[in-house]
Simulated scan of single mutants.
Amino acid sequence: MPINLSKGQKVDLTKGNPGLKKIMVGLGWDVNAFDSGADFDLDAAAFMLGQNGKCPTEKEFIFYGNLEHSSGAVKHMGDNLTGEGEGDDEQIQIDLAMIPANVEKVAFTVTIYDSDVRRQNFGQVSNSFIRIVDETTGQELIRYDLGEDFSIETAVVVGELYRHNGEWKFNAIGSGFQGGLAALCGHYGIEVA
């Protein structure tokens, strides 16, 4: 049975699973019934953060335009343009053993592509979740359902992996931002063209 988290809850990941090295982070969502006239393209991303809470360089920002970190530690499995169907809409593979020493946290985010033009926000999205799966066994370890707390936000920090006393933990964050991906990049120290 996976551990179901609520907002703000933190849980040990590697302490109770000492052999855990490779995990898959799955993010999923559904779009509410009413039609905004355009497809919803939600994008998952991972920000690899140093001690200061910022990405050391833009190479630590893993998204549809930069699918893999040079260390091989974080790999985005590709962009899903519609979010159709059951289960994970986008997946990010993490090799905990390969995460560079200068990276303290990996933050997972979801943003709405072109939200301003398409007049879309997270108030129109439901059943959003993040789950963490042990890639070796296929077992779901953690699941966090975001609930329906959003209205006008166009970006959400879903959760983060972080180092604590040599172990990896997960924090269910679920906080929304306005300003989409650009706002998140600014928050994490990435300059946006």
Score class of each variant (00 low, 15 high):
I132D: 07
T57W: 07
A155M: 11
F63G: 01
A172D: 08
A33R: 13
L81I: 04
S151H: 04
L49F: 05
F63C: 08
E191M: 15
A44N: 02
N102M: 07
G180P: 08
V192N: 00
D30V: 08
E104F: 03
K105Q: 03
G37A: 12
K169E: 10
P18C: 14
G186Q: 08
E167P: 07
T14D: 09
L81A: 15
F122T: 01
S70P: 03
A38G: 02
G50H: 11
V133E: 06
S70L: 14
R131N: 08
K10E: 13
V156I: 15
G78H: 13
N171Y: 14
K169T: 07
H76W: 02
A44F: 03
K21G: 01
M98I: 03
V110K: 01
K15N: 07
V74K: 03
Y162F: 15
M48V: 06
G180C: 08
K59S: 13
A183G: 13
G78E: 07
Y113E: 00
I99V: 15
G26D: 05
R163S: 04
F150I: 10
K54E: 07
A182F: 04
W29Q: 05
H164N: 06
G72D: 13
N121H: 08
G37V: 14
E135I: 03
G147V: 12
Y144S: 06
Q93G: 02
F47Y: 11
A97E: 12
E167G: 09
